[in-house]
Design a protein around this nucleic acid. Structure first.
Length: 912
RNA sequence: GGGCGAUUAGCUCAGUUGGUUAGAGCGCUACGUUGACAUCGUAGAGGUCGAUGGUUCGAGUCCAUUAUCGCCCACCA
C-alpha cells in the first residue's frame, strides 16, 4: 500500500475501526481453561451525555490498559454502557416537552411520559458511545449495557429484596434535601455548597410575661421563623441563663399551627406560637447574638436540636414551594417572595433588627442548580454502616488499591462517617421501588410484580398499589460490575469476568459510585469467597481536565474543548497521545486546543519514519539482525538501536503494568523521535543509498525490527496509525501476521542491552554534536565543505572513531575526516572539543572567530564550574569520609575527564 | 474549621528511593529545504526550583513554619 507523504488520520481511522470490528471486534475469545481474564467496566456515562475531555482522557486510559492486556494474552473484556441518570434525563425530556408542546409530565401521565423518555433514549442515548468509538475504544459492543434494561431491573430488585430481608432498608419521615424545582428528594451527595452573598437578619422575639424584653436571633432565612418551635442558647451563656425554660411569643404566627412530635410523624398535633427557650451545647458562645432560632422542620441542625429537646416539627412548604397554611397570612406565597414580605411585617412591628451583608454557604442541587430546602419527608433509606465495614476493610487489607494512593483517605473518610442513604426519588424515570402495599398500607418488597388484588405474602390481604417512587440512580449503578455480567443469574460471564481488575474514574464520584460499588460487591457477591467479592482491585482516579486558565471546563462557562472537534482536526491518536503526555497520573492538567499539536506531530513522525522504512524495503534483501548470520553483519548503530529498543520495551512494559501511562508514553516518544529518527535513520541512510551496499540487508532488517516493535509498543496509545502502518509493513515484508490489535506484545526476543555499543555511540554523538556547533558558526548562505582533523589520543576512542569515520562524516556533514592520535592545528581552523577529543575544522574561513571564542569560552566556564564543584566536595573531609565510596570515586573520575577537556579548551582558546 | 493538591525556563509540565553542569514540549533567536517528515532538521538563548529555618558531607527532592492559588469535606444560626 502506498502511503501518502502526509499523515492524514481522517483517511483511515473509520476504515480501521471497521476492520477491527470485522475481525471479531473486541469480544473476548474463549480461551483455554487456564485463561487469564482482564476486565474493565466503563463508568457508564449518562445517556444525556456528550463526550467531554474528562471522558476522552478516561476512555484513553481504559483503552490503553485493555489493549495492552489483550496483547499480553489476557482474555480482555471492556464492557461499555450508559446510565439512565434518573434526574438528569427526566429533566431533559421534561424541558423538551414543555418547549415543544407546552406540556408538563403530569399533563401526559406517567406511562405516556415514560414512553417519551424511552423514545428520547432510543434516539439520543447511544450518541456518547459512538463518540467513544471515534476515540478508538476497544469495547465489546456486543455486551453494551444500560442501567434501565430488564437485566438491570432484575438485579436491582434482587438487591433491594435482599437488603429488605436483612432489615437494611427502612422507610420513614426524615429530614431530607428537597429540590423544589425537580420535585424530589436528593441525597447529601447530590448537593454542593455554593458560597453566596446574602443578608443576615436579626429578629426579635418578645419574652412572654416580661413586657419589653426580647431575645434577638439571627438568621439567613427569616421566612423559616414561621416554623420555629424553640430558641436555643448555650447553657453557659450568662446573658440568657434566666430565660431558659421560659417562653417566647413567636411573632406573625397564629395561635396554632399544625405540627408533629418526633415520636409520631404521622398524626398532626397543634403547635403553639409560644415557644420555649432551651439550653443546648451546640450553640456557640461567641457567635452572633448567642441565641439560635430552632426550626426542626427546615434545618438539619435544628432537627437534631429539636429531637434532643422534644420540640415539635412544623413544616411550612407545599410541594410546589409555596408556603402552606401554617404560614397564616403568608400562606400561598412562593418561598422566594415570602422572605421579603415577612421582613416587611416584622419591621412594621419593630421586631426586625439589624440586616447585614453576609457570606455563607447555600446548598444547591447538583442537577437543577436550585436552592435545596431541608424538609421532613417520608422516604426510603438504606442502612449504610453494615455495608461500609467490608468496604473499609478492603483498602485496609490491601485488596483495593487507589491510584494515586491519596484517594484512599478520601474514600475512607466518607465510609467511616457514612450516613444512611436516601434511595427514594419522587420521579418517574428510574427503577420503580419494588414495594407493594396492602389495604392497610403494609409494605412488602418483591422480586416479581405483585398484581393489584393479589395477596400480600405476609398479611394475606389484597395488594392495592405499588410504591410510586423510583430509586436513586446509584441504586442501579452500584451493581454495575456484576449486574452487567448477568447477576443474579449465575452466568458464564459472571464466573469468568468477575471480579474485574481495573476501574478508572473521576474523583467526583469516589463516594457516589466507587465506594458504593465496593459495598455492593461484598454484599451481593456472597457466593464467592471473601477475597473475590471485591468488584475491582485497582481504582484509578484520573486527572481533572481544566481549561487553559485553570478553570474547570463546563458547558455553562463555555470554556470546554470538544474532543470530537479535536479528533476531526488532529485525529483520534493525536488526541489520545497528547492527553497521556500531558497528564502525569492524577495531576490536574490545563488544556488548550493547541496542545493536541504535540500528539499530531508525533503521529506524523511515526508515519514518516514508517514511510522511510517501507520505501527502503521493497525488492531488497533483508537480514534479521538477531539471527546468527545477521549478528555477524551488524554495525555499531544497529547494535545500539537494538539495545535502545530492548530498554524501551522493558520500560514500557513495566510502566504499563504499573499503570504509569505518562512515563510509558514519554519513553516511547523519546525512543522513536530522538533515538530512532534523529540518529539511527539518519546514520543508516548511507547504507540504503545503494542496493548493492553489503551493509544494507542487516540495516533493513534492523529498520524493520525496530519499526515493527515500535508500532506494537505504541499500539495501545495510538491504535489507528499503528494499525494502518502495521498493515503496510506486513504487506511489504509479506508477513502473515494478525492485525496489530490481536498481535502479541513484543517479547524482546533476540534483543539485549549492549552497554558497549551504547557508550561508543555516545562518543560519536558527542563528537558530531561538537562539530555541528562549529558548523553553525559559519555565516549564512556560504556553507563550504568542511574538512576535519580529529585528534584522539586515547586508543580505544580513536579506534571507535576510525571504525565509524563515515558515520561522523555524514552526520557532521564533513567533506573529509582524518583521525589520528594527535594532529597539529591547521591555520585558520576552527576547533571543537568533545571530551578528550579535539576536532580541527578547516576550510571554514568564514567562521566567525569571535563567536567561536565565545563558544569555547562559555564551554570552558562550565567545565571550570564543574571542576570547582567537585573540588569543593573532594576538599571536604566529611564528604570523603561519609559519602558512599562509589560516589566519591565517581567524582574523581569525573574530575579527571573534565580536567582533560579544560586543558584542550584553554589551549585552543589561547591559540585562536 | 478540617483534609488534599499545586508552586521548577516566557507558557504547559517532568524530575522515581537525597549524589555529575536541574530536563521535555511549545514559544523565542540564528541557520538550513541532501530523495521519511518544513506537521522537518541543526545549533543557541533562557531557571538563585514560592519564602524562611532545619536535618545532612551533600536538598528541587526529607522535616518544620509560612505565602499564594485550586479542590474536597464539615449542622456556626
Amino acid at each position: 500500500m502506498e502511503l501518502s507523504t502526509r499523515y492524514t488520520p481522517a483517511e483511515f481511522e473509520a476504515g480501521i475501526y471497521t476492520e477491527w470490528l470485522a475481525t471479531g471486534g473486541f469480544s473476548p475469545k474463549v480461551a483455554p481453561p487456564a485463561e487469564k481474564t482482564y476486565t474493565i467496566m466503563i463508568p457508564p456515562p449518562n445517556v444525556t451525555g456528550v463526550l467531554h475531555m474528562g471522558h476522552a482522557l478516561n476512555g484513553t486510559i481504559q483503552d490503553i490498559v485493555i489493549r495492552h492486556r489483550r496483547m499480553n494474552g489476557f482474555t480482555a473484556l471492556w464492557v461499555p454502557g450508559t446510565d439512565h441518570a434518573g434526574i438528569a434525563t427526566q429533566a431533559v425530556v421534561e424541558k423538551q416537552l414543555f418547549e415543544k408542546e407546552k406540556k408538563t409530565r403530569n399533563d401526559l401521565g406517567r406511562d405516556a411520559f415514560l414512553a417519551r423518555v424511552w423514545e428520547w433514549k432510543e434516539q439520543h442515548g447511544s450518541y456518547i458511545l459512538e463518540q467513544f468509538r471515534r476515540l478508538g475504544s476497544s469495547c465489546d459492543w456486543s455486551r453494551t449495557r444500560f442501567t434501565m434494561e430488564p437485566m438491570m431491573t432484575a438485579a436491582v430488585r434482587e438487591s433491594f429484596v435482599r437488603l429488605w430481608e436483612k432489615g437494611l432498608i427502612y422507610r420513614g419521615p426524615r429530614m431530607v434535601n428537597w429540590d423544589f424545582k425537580l420535585g424530589t428528594a436528593v441525597s447529601d451527595d447530590e448537593i454542593e455548597n455554593e458560597s453566596r452573598k446574602d443578608k443576615l437578619y436579626e429578629l426579635r422575639y418578645p419574652v412572654k410575661d416580661s413586657p419589653g424584653e426580647f431575645i434577638t436571633v439571627a438568621t439567613t432565612r427569616p421566612e423559616t421563623m414561621l416554623g420555629d418551635t424553640g430558641v436555643a442558647v448555650n447553657p453557659k451563656d450568662e446573658r440568657y441563663g434566666h430565660l431558659v425554660g421560659k417562653s417566647l411569643l413567636l411573632p406573625l404566627v397564629r395561635e396554632r399551627r399544625d405540627g408533629y412530635h418526633f415520636d409520631d410523624l404521622v398524626n398532626p398535633i397543634a403547635v403553639s406560637a409560644e415557644i420555649p427557650v432551651i439550653a443546648d451545647e451546640s450553640v456557640e458562645l461567641g457567635f452572633g447574638t448567642g441565641a439560635v432560632k430552632v426550626t426542626p422542620g427546615h434545618d438539619p441542625a435544628d432537627y437534631e436540636r429539636g429531637k434532643r429537646h422534644g420540640l415539635l416539627i412544623v413544616s411550612l412548604y407545599e410541594k410546589d414551594g409555596r408556603l402552606n397554611a401554617n404560614a397564616g397570612e403568608f400562606a400561598g406565597i412562593a418561598r422566594e417572595k415570602a422572605r421579603e414580605a415577612i421582613c416587611k411585617r416584622l419591621d412594621e412591628l419593630g421586631l426586625l433588627g439589624k440586616v447585614e451583608d453576609y457570606v455563607h454557604n447555600v446548598p444547591i442541587s447538583d442537577r437543577s442548580k436550585s436552592v435545596i430546602e431541608p424538609i421532613v419527608s417520608e422516604q426510603w433509606f438504606v442502612k449504610m454502616e453494615p455495608l461500609a465495614k467490608p468496604a473499609i476493610a478492603a483498602v485496609k487489607n490491601g485488596s483495593l488499591k487507589f491510584r494515586p494512593e491519596r484517594w484512599t483517605k478520601v474514600y475512607l473518610d466518607w465510609l467511616e462517617n457514612v450516613h444512611d442513604w436516601c434511595i427514594s426519588r419522587q420521579l418517574w424515570w428510574g427503577h420503580q421501588i419494588p414495594v407493594w402495599y396492602d389495604e392497610d398500607n403494609v409494605p412488602v418488597a418483591s422480586r416479581t410484580d405483585l398484581a393489584i388484588g393479589s395477596m400480600h405474602p405476609v398479611t394475606k390481604k389484597p395488594i392495592v398499589r405499588q410504591d410510586p417512587d423510583v430509586l436513586d440512580t446509584w441504586a442501579s449503578s452500584w451493581l454495575w460490575p456484576f449486574a452487567t455480567l448477568g447477576w443474579p443469574e449465575k452466568t458464564p460471564d459472571l464466573a469468568r469476568f468477575y471480579p474485574t481488575q481495573f476501574l478508572s474514574t473521576a474523583r467526583e464520584i469516589i463516594y457516589l459510585w466507587v465506594a458504593r460499588m465496593v459495598m455492593a460487591g461484598y454484599e451481593f457477591m456472597d457466593h464467592l469467597p471473601m477475597e473475590q467479592r471485591i468488584p475491582f482491585t485497582t481504582c484509578n482516579v484520573h486527572a481533572t481536565v481544566l481549561d487553559g486558565k485553570g478553570r474547570r471546563m463546563s458547558k455553562s462557562a463555555g470554556n470546554g474543548i470538544d474532543p470530537i472537534e479535536m479528533i476531526d482536526k488532529y485525529g483520534a491518536d493525536a488526541v489520545r497521545y497528547s492527553l497521556i503526555l500531558l497528564t502525569k497520573e492524577g495531576q490536574d492538567v490545563k488544556l488548550s486546543p493547541d496542545r493536541f499539536d504535540q500528539g499530531y506531530r508525533f503521529s506524523n513522525k511515526v508515519w514518516n519514519a514508517a514511510r522511510f522504512v517501507l520505501l527502503n524495503m521493497s525488492g531488497a534483501q533483508i537480514v534479521d539482525p538477531t539471527s546468527k548470520e545477521g549478528r555477524a553483519q551488524t554495525r555499531l548503530e544497529d547494535r545500539w538501536i537494538l539495545s535502545r529498543l530492548a530498554r524501551v520495551r522493558t520500560e514500557v512494559s513495566a510502566k504499563l503494568d504499573a499503570y504509569l501511562f505518562n512515563d510509558a508514553a514519554t519513553a516511547l516518544y523519546q525512543f522513536v523521535w530522538n533515538d530512532f529518527c534523529d540518529w539511527y535513520v539518519e546514520i543508516v541512510k548511507g547504507r540504503m543509498s545503494s542496493k548493492e551496499d553489503p551493509s544494507g540487508p542487516v540495516a533493513r532488517g534492523t529498520l524493520a525490527r525496530v519499526l515493527s516493535d515500535s508500532l506494537a509498543l505504541l499500539h495501545p496509545f495510538t491504535p489507528y496509525v499503528t494499525e494502518v502502518l502495521w498493515k503496510s509493513l506486513n504487506e511489504t515484508l509479506s508477513r502473515k501476521l494478525p492485525m496489530l490489535m490481536n498481535h502479541v506484545w513484543p517479547d524482546g526476543a533476540g534483543l539485549e542491552i549492549d552497554a558497549r555499543a551504547e557508550s561508543e555511540m555516545q562518543s560519536i554523538q558527542d563528537l558530531v554534536h561538537a562539530v555541528r556547533q562549529v558548523r553553525n558558526l559559519t555565516s549564512a548562505g556560504e556553507r563550504q565543505p568542511l574538512v576535519a582533523k580529529i585528534a584522539a589520543p586515547v586508543k580505544a576512542e580513536r579506534d571507535v572513531l576510525l571504525a565509524h569515520a563515515a558515520t561522523v562524516k555524514a552526520l557532521a556533514a564533513l567533506e573529509t575526516c582524518e583521525i589520528a592520535e594527535k594532529t597539529a592545528r591547521p591555520k585558520n581552523s576552527a576547533v571543537a572539543v568533545a571530551g578528550g577529543i579535539e576536532v580541527f575544522v578547516t576550510l571554514a574561513e568564514n567562521v566567525d572567530l569571535g563567536k567561536l571564542k565565545d563558544v569555547l569560552a562559555r564551554r570552558a566556564d562550565k567545565v571550570r564550574q564543574g571542576i570547582a564543584g567537585i573540588d569543593a566536595k573532594l576538599g571536604n573531609a566529611a564528604f570523603v569520609e561519609r559519602a558512599d565510596p562509589e560516589v566519591v570515586e565517581g567524582e574523581k573520575v569525573r574530575r579527571a575527564e573534565l580536567v582533560v577537556e579544560l586543558q584542550l579548551l584553554e589551549r585552543n582558546l589561547s591559540d585562536a
